[in-house]
Nucleic acid binder design. Structure first.
Lengths: 344, 344
DNA sequence: TGTTAGCACTCGATGATCAAGAGTGCTAAC
DNA sequence: GTTAGCACTCTTGATCATCGAGTGCTAACA
């Protein structure tokens, strides 16, 4: 079902105008947009056809047309003219990202903030975890006679800590042994390979100390689980409240949805490599209806790693947002590589 | 300006009803609430006086009365009948707080969540930092040949980490020396006493290594600053969107305000010891108008430490919220003491 | 002197009616 | 295939009358 050239032009104009104003667009307005090439009656005929083809719909008889999800899909895939970022645009983004000097996690966090600010949408990112996240280092630190802090550093440079409390005093020797056992047993191991059985067998290997160290091992296990699943960072949710397209109820539902990180996490991890636009109505989630998600991945050492994306109203400025998001992802990847690259 | 007993009863009834319904309350409704003790005309006379005294106001001539901020103040300080928590109420709260076993920071975080859930307001807490927050431990951990992680543990058991990157490779010896210098120089020192000059003089003392270690010292300084000011945790902001008293614009402004943690931090730290109710109109912040804050402190080792509080609409159920908040603060303090108490 | 019944009055909320305007679909002419 | 013209539909905003809740005031009452 190929669309004629004029139909494409008209549809594109309708969507562009709708994205700009949020109002249904009528035949008169379109005549101007198409440089008076044809009359409004012709436009009307074409629009009637576009309607019956499922690309346009009318909120009511005497209103203009608004694009359907199907139309947005076509627009995004084929019709839209992406903006080309100016030197100034790039500079702006570069500046926003220059804040976090050496910490990968903070970089991602600030990238989230910046992306939200630039696009006016909510931004979501996942920390670099990737498939190849392994344990680079484990530390057992005494905090007091019964409290011990565990620290886990992954291969991607992300740190996680947890404090746990023993049932009775532990001596340095025990901690030392625990620390050695953890490092020996799990250093360099991929996070995904560490499950309850592995931790339990380590506990058994510790012999009489195993039971005493149970709180620490539990904490360690939780720490591994926590580090294994990429953390989802969200920024600029309040931007969504500002947008007129969201009535209070819908906005609340959406924010509720976004607050459930495990949802987002699943959503993002299910995304294939490459830049994707998911229209809310295309997902199975009713909360996302009326919204739209653009996601891509940033790379780490040349490999696709964490996700970075935005979520906003269906009627968002794709032509501007997409190239910006791409540039963000590229820059984040580059900065991460710079941080992680070592002098060897 | 003492209020007669009947006036007090009427005012209390008005506020109770207004808190329940959110609508202006009229003389007829009040007659019922006061068990038909007097006629509506009498009530009207009394209400007219209460109006001229500044306790009640009318949205428009033909509507009932709503309480003013002055009335709420009186209500909270003297008129209100606090709910007494049932055994079941306490159990509920105890259960909600039993999650985070041994980690003080996670305990506070979960307390925030739970408090928001129970009260239907937004909850805010600060991590235990207190005036007496000193450095219990500093660790310098190599992450790779150029990346180093710093870890800071404060006396209250809170951990903070930061990753920094050196301009060139650092050998273990240098790191060792840095670690020793930091521990020797700042171990046991109060956070508030560590400023740029102190860090700089340490850098000088490191001699030729000082310059090389500059990124780490910068990170250390930032870490100290970050740990010195109690972190403000916020939960349940979305509860506010659910409340009919907030129109979308006001809700957004309030959420914007809450998102600026440094504002909250200042607000909380300026609060005197003990349970306080601050009506939004009593603060200088226009964003808080129409809202109300209830704050208290939890204790750590018998000393008042972090803040814990809620923020919600002016018309909130104080009689229920206040005793719950108090119980929360007590329980959090108890749990913290349990976690921190050492076997010596 | 304090309380109450009665009543006129005010003012927002509700709903009906109406005109204006935007936009369409259809028909007939080009 | 395109266009001018026109009748038709439907939203929007304004105007207006009505209704009802609630008040303030006055006069009667205990």
């Amino acid at each position: 079902m190929e669309l004629g050239e004029r139909k494409q032009k008209i549809l594109t104009a309708v969507i562009d105008a709708y994205i700009r104003t949020g109002e249904p667009v009528g035949s008169k307005a379109l005549v101007e947009m198409l440089d008076n090439a044809v009359s409004s009656a012709t436009i009307r005929n074409e629009m009637a056809e576009l309607s019956s083809m499922g690309y346009l719909e009318q909120p009511h008889t005497s209103a203009g047309r608004i694009p359907t999800a199907k139309a947005f899909r076509l627009y995004i895939d084929r019709l839209m003219h992406r903006q080309v970022l100016s030197e100034a645009d790039r500079k702006d983004i570069d500046n926003l990202l220059s804040g976090a000097a050496g910490d990968p996690e903070r970089l991602i966090e600030e990238a989230s903030q910046a992306l939200a600010e630039i696009t006016g949408c909510a931004a979501m990112t996942t920390t670099p975890a990737g498939q190849a996240a392994y344990i680079r280092r484990i530390e057992v630190l005494r905090a007091s006679s019964r409290m011990v802090a565990l620290l886990l550093m992954t291969g991607s440079g992300v740190l996680r800590t947890r404090v746990c409390r023993f049932d009775r005093d532990v001596d340095n020797e025990t901690l030392e042994r625990l620390s050695k056992a953890l490092t020996a047993g799990f250093g360099g191991v991929e996070l995904s390979e560490i499950g309850l059985p592995q931790v339990q067998s380590l506990m058994a290997a510790l012999g009489e100390n195993g039971l005493l160290c149970a709180p620490a091992l539990t904490a360690f296990y939780e720490l591994v689980q926590e580090s294994a699943e990429a953390e989802v960072l969200l920024a600029g949710q309040l931007n969504l409240l500002r947008h007129p397209d969201y009535d209070p109820g819908r906005a609340r539902d959406l924010l509720d949805f976004l607050a459930r990180r495990e949802m987002l996490s699943g959503l993002l991890s299910a995304m294939p490599i490459g830049l994707r636009v998911v229209l809310g109505s295309e997902s199975e989630r009713p909360e996302l209806d009326g919204s739209s998600i653009i996601v891509t991945r940033y790379t780490l050492g040349g490999q696709p790693d964490g996700s970075i994306g935005i979520i906003g109203p269906l009627r968002m400025n794709y032509a501007a947002a997409i190239p910006r998001l791409e540039y963000f992802a590229n820059t984040v990847g580059k900065l991460l590589d710079e941080i992680m690259r070592d002098g060897d």
